[in-house]
Write a protein that binds this DNA or RNA. Structure first.
Length: 662
DNA sequence: CTTAGGG
DNA sequence: CCCTAAG
C-alpha cells in the first residue's frame, strides 16, 4: 500500500506566515470544478478493514465465538482468520464469488459497507443450509400457498428477520452458540398462517448483559497512526491514493423504495416488541434517516431489471458533481423518509441475486410455491472501531449493526417483475405471482419500518412515487455509540489489524484526518457502534413532480451532531492556512472530500467556532479540547486571511496598506 | 451552487 | 447545525 505521506514541508512552506498557496482565484478563473475529480482508487488498499472485519464476522458466524480463539489473541489470529476466510471464499459458490468480488473490488473504498452483507448472507445461508428443521417445516407447509397474500409473504419474511432481534443479540446472545441458534429457519415456507412462523422463534436465554450503550462521540485523537495511514486529508489533489482514495461514493445515489406500509393488520402482529432496545434502534434509524449510506452497491448490484432501473442509479459516477448537489440532496431526502433497506433480486443476469426463490409445482393444480430466501444483502454499514478495541467488541459491533437493522422494524417489500407489489391483500395469484415467476421475477426487499414517520410515509404522493421506483437501497450507517473505554484486553491495533482499521476510518465517510500531532493519548479512541440508517430517496421530486409541492411539513430532521475531532480540526486548520477563509468549497475538497457529512458550510461554521474558541479562555471551552497549538494557528490564519481580504478590497484601504501596495 | 452571517 | 440572503 502506498500512501503518499504529507510531507511536513508542505506545511512549512506556508511558514507561520501562511503564504497562500495561490492567491484567491477569481471564480471565473477556477475552471471547471469537475476537473478536480479524484481518480482511481489506489489498488492494494482494499484488503484492510474490510477483510479484517469480514474475517471476524465470518468466523463468528461460521463457527461461533470460539473460533476466534481468545478474544485477546490479536492481530496474528486475525490474520490467520483472514486467510482462512479467503480460502473459503474461493471455493464457494456464485454467491461467495460475488462476495469476494466485492471484497476485493478496488472500487469499494468503503469496505465496511460490505461486511454486513457478508454477515447477513452468512446468517441466511447458514440457516438455509444447515437447518433441517427449517426445511422440513417449509415442506410441511405446502398447502394454501397460492392463497397467501402478499402481506402473508411479508410476515413470513418478517418472522425470519425477527429472529435476529436486538434483544437476543444485544443481550449478549452474540456468542457463537447464540448466533447459531439465531439462524434456524430462514427458509420461508409461506403459509397462510404467517403467525406460525413467528411463533417458531424460540426465546433466547442469555445470561449476558446487554452491552452498555455508550454515548459515543468521544472521538479522541486517533493514536497509533502509522505513517502510511497518515495520509492527511490535507493532501492536495494527490493523484490516486490519498485524496482520491476516498471518493465518496454515493450516499447520494440512494434510490429507495418507499415504505409501503402494509395495510394489513397482519403486519402489526409481527411488529417487534417495543422494548427499550427496539426503541433505541428505531430511534437510531430515525435519526439517521436522512443520511443514507449510499449503498455501496456495485454495478452488478444495481443491475436490476431494466424496469427497475432508475435514473438515480446513474449517479454513481457523479463523484464530484455529487458533492455539489449534496445540499439539495439532503433536502430531497428530508422529503422522503422511506428507504428500502435491502435489495434482493432473483435471477439476476449476473447471478448476483441476493435472494432467490425456488419455485416448485409446475402445475396450477398444486398451488403452493415454496420460496427460499437465498440471501439478503445489506448494502452498507459502516463500522468504526478503535484500533484498541477488542475483537470481542468488534464482533459485538458488527452483530449489533446487523441486528439493529433486522430488529429495528423491518418490512418486506415484494417486487414482481420489478414492480412493487403494494397491495398486501392480494393473493399471490391475483398479483400474478405464479410459480413461473418465482425464479426470475420475484424479488424481495427489506425496508425499514416506517412506523416512526407515518405521516410522511403514508403520504399519497409518496406512494405514487414509489410506484415508479422499485429500486431498493441501502441503509446503514454509523452512529457513534458504545465506547468501551476499557478495552483492556487486546488491541487490534497492531500492524495487520491497525492498518485496516485505521484505513477504515479514513475510507469511511468519517474523515480522514489523521493528525500526527494527536498521538498523545492513544487510548482515547472511541468505539462507534453501527447503526443502520435507512436510505432516503433522492429521486422523489423528479419522479413525482405533480405532488411535489404538497409535502408534509415536518420533514427535516436536524442532522445529527458530529463534533469535530482534533484530527479534523487540524485538517481544517491546515487547509485554511493554505487556502484562506472564504474558500470553503475548496477547503472541503481539499481536506474533507472524504467526509461526506462535512459540508463546506459545516467547515465554515467550524472555523467560526474555532476562532471563537481560540478567543476565549480555556476554561470556557467545551467539548473535546483542541490543542492550544491548533487554536493559535487558527488565530494566526484568521488574522492573516482577514488582512488579505482587506487588501483585496481597496474600498477603503488603510493608508498604511495603500502605501505598501503602491 | 457558494458565500457570508445571523440564529 | 440550520436558514437565508446575495451573488
Amino acid at each position: 500500500m502506498v500512501f503518499q505521506k504529507r510531507s511536513s514541508s508542505e506545511m512549512e512552506s506556508c511558514g507561520g506566515g501562511q503564504v497562500a498557496e495561490m492567491p484567491r482565484v477569481p471564480k471565473s478563473a477556477r475552471g471547471k470544478r469537475s476537473v478536480r475529480k479524484k481518480e482511481a482508487q489506489n489498488p492494494g488498499q482494499t484488503m484492510c478493514a474490510f477483510d479484517l472485519l469480514a474475517t471476524v464476522a465470518g468466523k463468528l458466524l461460521d463457527e461461533g465465538e470460539g473460533s476466534l480463539g481468545n478474544m485477546s489473541t490479536g492481530a496474528p489470529a486475525l490474520a490467520a482468520c483472514a486467510k482462512d476466510v479467503r480460502v473459503k471464499q474461493e471455493q464457494c459458490d456464485e454467491e461467495m464469488k460475488h462476495f469476494k468480488h466485492e471484497v476485493t473490488d478496488q472500487d469499494s473504498c468503503n469496505e465496511s459497507a460490505i461486511l454486513p452483507h457478508i454477515v447477513f448472507q452468512r446468517l441466511v445461508s447458514h440457516a438455509r443450509n444447515e437447518d433441517p428443521k427449517a426445511k422440513s417445516e417449509a415442506q410441511d407447509k405446502e398447502s394454501s400457498m397460492i392463497s397467501c397474500t402478499k402481506a402473508d409473504l411479508g410476515c413470513n419474511f418478517r418472522a425470519i428477520a425477527d429472529r435476529w432481534s436486538p434483544e437476543s443479540v444485544e443481550s449478549g446472545a452474540f456468542t457463537g452458540d447464540a448466533v447459531a441458534s439465531l439462524m434456524p429457519t430462514a427458509t420461508a415456507g409461506f403459509h397462510k398462517n404467517a403467525p406460525d412462523m413467528y411463533n417458531l422463534l424460540d426465546p433466547m436465554d442469555v445470561d449476558v448483559k446487554p452491552p452498555p450503550l455508550v454515548s459515543s462521540d468521544s472521538t479522541g485523537e486517533m493514536p497509533l497512526y502509522d505513517d502510511k495511514i497518515r495520509r492527511s486529508i490535507s493532501l492536495p489533489r494527490g493523484p490516486k491514493g490519498v485524496a482520491g482514495y476516498a471518493v465518496d461514493r454515493d450516499d447520494d445515489d440512494d434510490k429507495s423504495s418507499g415504505c409501503t406500509h402494509p395495510s394489513t393488520t397482519t403486519n402489526r402482529d409481527f411488529r417487534p416488541n417495543c422494548t427499550a432496545e427496539h426503541s433505541r434502534v428505531r430511534k437510531l434509524l430515525t435519526c439517521k434517516y436522512r443520511k443514507v449510506a449510499p449503498a455501496r452497491m456495485h454495478k452488478s448490484d444495481l443491475s436490476y431489471s431494466d424496469v427497475e432501473r432508475k435514473p438515480s442509479f446513474r449517479n454513481k459516477k457523479m463523484h464530484y458533481t455529487r458533492q455539489r448537489t449534496q445540499r439539495s440532496t439532503f433536502k430531497r431526502r428530508k422529503l422522503f423518509d422511506r428507504h428500502s433497506v435491502l435489495a434482493s433480486e432473483f435471477g439476476r443476469a449476473n447471478g448476483k441475486g441476493n435472494t432467490k426463490v425456488t419455485g416448485r409445482n409446475s402445475h396450477a393444480a398444486s398451488l403452493e410455491v415454496k420460496l427460499r430466501i437465498k440471501s439478503f444483502k445489506v448494502p452498507e454499514l459502516l463500522v468504526e472501531i478503535p484500533e484498541s478495541a477488542t475483537v470481542g467488541s468488534l464482533k459485538k459491533n458488527v452483530l449489533e449493526a446487523v441486528t439493529a437493522i433486522l430488529g429495528g422494524g423491518l418490512r418486506i417489500g415484494v417486487l414482481h417483475h420489478g414492480k412493487r407489489v403494494r397491495d398486501d391483500s392480494k393473493t399471490l395469484m391475483q398479483a400474478g405471482i405464479g410459480q413461473d415467476d418465482m425464479l426470475d421475477n420475484l424479488g424481495f426487499s427489506l425496508e425499514p419500518n416506517c412506523t416512526h414517520n407515518p405521516s410522511q410515509v403514508q403520504a399519497p404522493e409518496d406512494i405514487s412515487f414509489l410506484e415508479t421506483i422499485d429500486t431498493t437501497e441501502p441503509l446503514a450507517r454509523i452512529a457513534p455509540a458504545d465506547s468501551s473505554s476499557k478495552h483492556g484486553e487486546v488491541d487490534v491495533s497492531q500492524e495487520l489489524a491497525l492498518t485496516p482499521l485505521a484505513m477504515n476510518y479514513q475510507g469511511s465517510d468519517h474523515d480522514s484526518v489523521h493528525s500526527p500531532g494527536g498521538v498523545s493519548s492513544p487510548d482515547k479512541v472511541s468505539t462507534r457502534a453501527l447503526v443502520p440508517v435507512p436510505p432516503a430517496d433522492a429521486n422523489a421530486g423528479a419522479l413525482v413532480p405533480v405532488n411535489k409541492s404538497k409535502r408534509s411539513p415536518e420533514q427535516g430532521q436536524r442532522r445529527i451532531r458530529r463534533p469535530f475531532s482534533v484530527a479534523e480540526v487540524e485538517a481544517l486548520v491546515l487547509a485554511v492556512e493554505k487556502l484562506g477563509t472564504g474558500r470553503w468549497r475548496d477547503v472541503k475538497l481539499r481536506a474533507f472530500d472524504n467526509a461526506k457529512h462535512r459540508t463546506y458550510v459545516d467547515l465554515k461554521d467550524k472555523w467560526k467556532t474555532l476562532v471563537h474558541t481560540a478567543s476565549i479562555s480555556p476554561q470556557q471551552r467545551r467539548g473535546e479540547p483542541v490543542p492550544q497549538e491548533l487554536l493559535d494557528r487558527v488565530l494566526a490564519a484568521q488574522a492573516y486571511w482577514s488582512q488579505q481580504q482587506a487588501k483585496l478590497q481597496p474600498k477603503t484601504p488603510p493608508l498604511a496598506e495603500a502605501r505598501l501596495l503602491t
